[in-house]
Amino acid sequence: MKRLRAWILPILVLILFALIPFTASFYYQQIFFYIFLFAGVGFAWNLVGGYAGQLSLGHAAFFGIGAYAYALLAPHIGTGPAVLAAAVLSTVSAAPIGLICFRLRGPYFALATIAVAQLLLVLATNQFKGLTQGAAGLLVQGMVPDPSLYYWVALGFMVVAFAVTALLATSKTGYYLMAIREDEDTAQTVTINTPLYKLYALLVSALLTGVGGSIFAANLGTIQPNDVFSAAISNQVVFLAILGGAGTLYGPLVGAFILEFASDWLKNSVANVTWLGDANAFAFFLYGLLIVLVVMYMPAGIVGTVAKWRKGRAAHVHAQRTTAGV
C-alpha cells in the first residue's frame, strides 16, 4: 500500500503534462519539450552523479554519440532502429570511458570526463568531418511527421527515464550506489564491488543519455558538433540536477522546470534593454548567478532542502507530542 501511494504523485503529474498540449501554443510546447528532454537526461546523470556520487562533467559525450548515431543511421535503417542503435552505441562507448575514468576520484574524475567530451568534440569537428560534416552541419531525419508530436516523444522519454531511476534507486543496486557515494572505501570493506556498480550506473546512464541525444537531434533537424558535444550540454544537465536536488527522485525535473523557464524569461525580459549590451550574455550571467546562490544556500538542492525541512518539522512535532504526553 505504501509503495502504491508513492506512485500517486507521478501519475497526477503525468496527467497534468498530458493536458498541456491542448491548451499551450507551439512555442510553449517547445519549451516543455526541452524541459522533458533535459529532465530525462538529468535523471540519467543522477544515477552516476547523484546516487553514486561520481561528478561526471562530460555527459555530452554520450549525448553527442547518440545524436550522431541517429543522424547517420536513420536514413538507412529507419528511425526506430536508429534510436536503438544510438542507445547501444552510447552504452558501448561508456564501458571503456568508465573503466578508464573510474580509476580516478574526486576532481580528477570530473576533469577526465570533461577531457573525454572535449576530445570527441574535436574529433567530430576536424578528424571525422567527412562523416559528421564538421561545423557545416549534418541534416537529421525527423522521427515524427508533425513537429508538435515531439512534445509526446520527449514526455515519453522522460517517463521512461524516471521509471528506470525510481526502480534502480529503490533496489539493492540503488542502496549500493548510495553507499559508494557516502564512503567508497567503507563500501569496499563490506564486500560491495564498487567498480562494477559504478560502471553499471554509467552504462544505464549512457543508454538513456544516448536516446536523449537522438531525440534532440531529430527535433533540431540539423546538428553540428558544438550542438551536442559542447560543455554547455554537460553543464546544463549537471546544473539542473544539482539545482533540483542531486540524489533525489524528483530533483532533475524540478531543476529542469526552473532553469528552462528562468532562461526563457531572462532572455525575453532583457532583450530590449539596450544599455545591458549583449542581452544573451547578461541573461546567462543572471542564470549563472541563480545557480551559484542555490548551491551556496541550498546545497541539497530544492527537493533535498524541502525534504530536510519536512523531516525536521515532523521530528519537531513528534517531540512536542511526546513532551505533551509525558
Rank of each mutant, 00 (worst) to 15 (best):
5 R>Y: 13
6 A>C: 08
8 I>M: 14
10 P>R: 13
13 V>I: 15
17 F>L: 14
24 A>L: 14
28 Y>W: 15
34 Y>A: 06
35 I>E: 02
37 L>I: 04
37 L>Q: 01
39 A>T: 10
41 V>E: 02
41 V>F: 05
43 F>P: 00
44 A>D: 02
44 A>S: 15
47 L>K: 07
51 Y>L: 11
51 Y>N: 03
59 H>Y: 05
61 A>P: 03
61 A>H: 03
63 F>I: 00
63 F>G: 00
64 G>P: 07
66 G>I: 03
68 Y>E: 07
70 Y>V: 07
71 A>L: 08
71 A>G: 09
72 L>Y: 01
74 A>P: 06
77 I>L: 10
78 G>F: 05
81 P>S: 05
82 A>E: 05
83 V>S: 06
86 A>I: 04
90 S>G: 15
93 S>K: 07
95 A>F: 15
96 P>G: 07
99 L>W: 14
99 L>M: 15
103 R>A: 12
108 Y>F: 14
108 Y>T: 09
108 Y>D: 11
110 A>H: 05
110 A>W: 06
113 T>Q: 04
115 A>S: 12
120 L>S: 07
121 L>W: 09
122 V>H: 11
124 A>V: 04
127 Q>S: 12
128 F>I: 06
129 K>H: 04
130 G>K: 10
135 A>L: 09
141 Q>P: 08
142 G>H: 12
142 G>A: 15
143 M>K: 04
144 V>G: 09
146 D>P: 06
148 S>I: 11
149 L>P: 00
149 L>F: 11
152 W>P: 01
160 V>P: 00
163 A>C: 11
166 A>H: 09
178 M>K: 13
182 E>W: 08
185 D>L: 15
186 T>R: 14
186 T>E: 06
187 A>V: 11
189 T>Y: 14
189 T>L: 14
193 N>P: 13
195 P>T: 07
198 K>T: 11
201 A>C: 12
205 S>Q: 12
205 S>E: 06
206 A>W: 04
207 L>Q: 03
208 L>A: 06
209 T>R: 00
212 G>M: 10
216 F>C: 03
218 A>S: 14
218 A>R: 01
221 G>R: 08
224 Q>L: 08
229 F>N: 00
230 S>N: 11
230 S>P: 02
235 N>P: 00
241 A>F: 02
244 G>T: 02
245 G>K: 02
247 G>V: 03
248 T>E: 02
250 Y>A: 02
255 G>A: 12
260 E>M: 12
261 F>A: 13
265 W>D: 08
266 L>T: 02
267 K>N: 10
274 T>C: 00
275 W>D: 02
278 D>Q: 13
280 N>H: 12
281 A>G: 12
284 F>K: 12
285 F>T: 13
288 G>M: 14
291 I>Q: 08
292 V>D: 06
293 L>W: 09
297 Y>A: 02
298 M>I: 05
299 P>K: 11
300 A>I: 04
301 G>F: 01
302 I>N: 01
304 G>T: 04
304 G>M: 07
305 T>Y: 09
307 A>F: 00
308 K>F: 05
312 G>S: 10
314 A>W: 08
314 A>G: 08
317 V>W: 13
319 A>N: 11
322 T>C: 07
322 T>F: 13
325 G>R: 15
